[in-house]
Design a protein around this nucleic acid. Sequence first.
RNA 1: GCUCCCAUCGUCUAGAGGCCUAGGACACCCGCCUCUCACGUGGGUAACAGGGGUUCGAAUCCCCUUGGGAGCGCCA
Length: 478
Amino acid sequence: MSAPVVTRFAPSPTGFLHIGGGRTALFNWLYAKRHGGKMLLRIEDTDRERSTPEAIDAILDGLKWLGLDWDGDVIYQFARAPRHREVAEEMLARGRAYKCYATQAELEAMREKAKAEGKPMRYDGRWRERSEADRQAAEAAGLKPVIRLKAPLEGETVVEDLVQGRVTWSNDNLDDLVLLRSDGTPTYMLAVVVDDHDMAVTHVIRGDDHLTNAARQTQIYQAMEWKVPAFAHIPLIHGADGAKLSKRHGALGVDAYRALGYLPAGLRNYLVRLGWSHGDQEIFSTEEMIAAFDLKNVGRSPARFDFAKLESINGHYMRHTGDEELLSAIETMLPYIEGGPALLGELNQLRRAQWLQAMPGLKERAKTLVELVEGSRFLFATRPLALDDKAREILEKGGRALLKALLNRLESLETWDAATLEAAVRAEAEATGQKLGNLAQPLRAALTGKATSPGIFDVFVVLGREESLGRIRDQATA
RNA sequence: GCUCCCAUCGUCUAGAGGCCUAGGACACCCGCCUCUCACGUGGGUAACAGGGGUUCGAAUCCCCUUGGGAGCGCCA
């Protein structure tokens, strides 16, 4: 029986959870779920200068909104520094690491020289085999050492990557990396390895940008004689122009996608298809996603972020989401958009009921919750309605006259349902020899203030008799 | 500069030597449906980066070129 799968998502809280990180988290989550394992969450906050509690909150909030949960408590890497130090000391004791007293100036000179000679920029190992006397002399001179890994000089280091395949580095391209800084704090490279080992992580699924780190980390595992976890380096997400994702492109925090009106399920579906595929299938329920997900169908080339496709998928989810659920999604989104809180304040029982009633016609016409809210404005509008340009044009070019004629018919209706209303308007159209659209558009303009809306007879019903007639009268007599 | 990775329609991708006259989705164009806009639906434009091999046969394997990307810190 193989060990249970343990994955982890390990963001550093130096910024918000961006879309690439969101996808990495999703892949880790899916892989863990797929294999009945666990996904752990570790906050890599060892950079005390740049880590902020706000960023930690944003990351946790973003994951929760995306619907990705983790097992156990959140692990904070900084709190584990003593353990990291302990491992560094152990490596020293085992002769797999050594103290290095090279100064920043020496290091800088080394880099300059390498550059000038066209050689790889790497530490030359000058303290690898120094005598005890040299070390004492350095200490006496007040130098604080770092602890470096005594990396293998010959042979090669191999990473068997579940996505990238077998990747090989010649060891003379890998230098003796720093494990412990001169101030006694661990470096990222050490901390990651120690934490992943201690957390019993079996699968490290992360961005492609860590591929070369995997080689160096493998050397640390080997020095400690620890089992190397399986690696899976997934390709990065690029902006629409192919360049690295930046704030300008779509590397927005996932919270921004919430404010843009995307549904978590829609975003997840879009994200899972970025780099991964399952034949021709485009839409996946969460269960299908879990059942179908694997690493071998993750591609190796970077993908561009495409808002048009995200919108399309999100639109699909909007149409297939229940009305009540959609309304509550709107309510959780409203606080994050302009004018949202005010709208939220107007959401009384009556309004909710109306909105719910109009939802089937509304959700079919929106690709995002923001668009849905936009299309719902007429529900909340108060008389006399403000008209947009197209609605005004319809009314001014003969629309008002038509409304006057219609008004009598409508006012005399006994029942107020879609079928009755449609019959009445059609009767008027026939009597005057016009197309239904000729009458529908002025009605739409009067009722919604716009030239587009859900079916006009549904609008009549949602608005109710009094409000509908009032809005028509406003325009007919204007 | 050095190391590593990548390369199919505009975009996301299917394709694991013959099933490919290269499939699907988004976007785009033209229809149908229709009270508007959508939805739905029918159809269309559009790709194997280039060059060498290997093979009876290559989008699929190998090499080179070109083009992208990532990493080269006492950052993570």
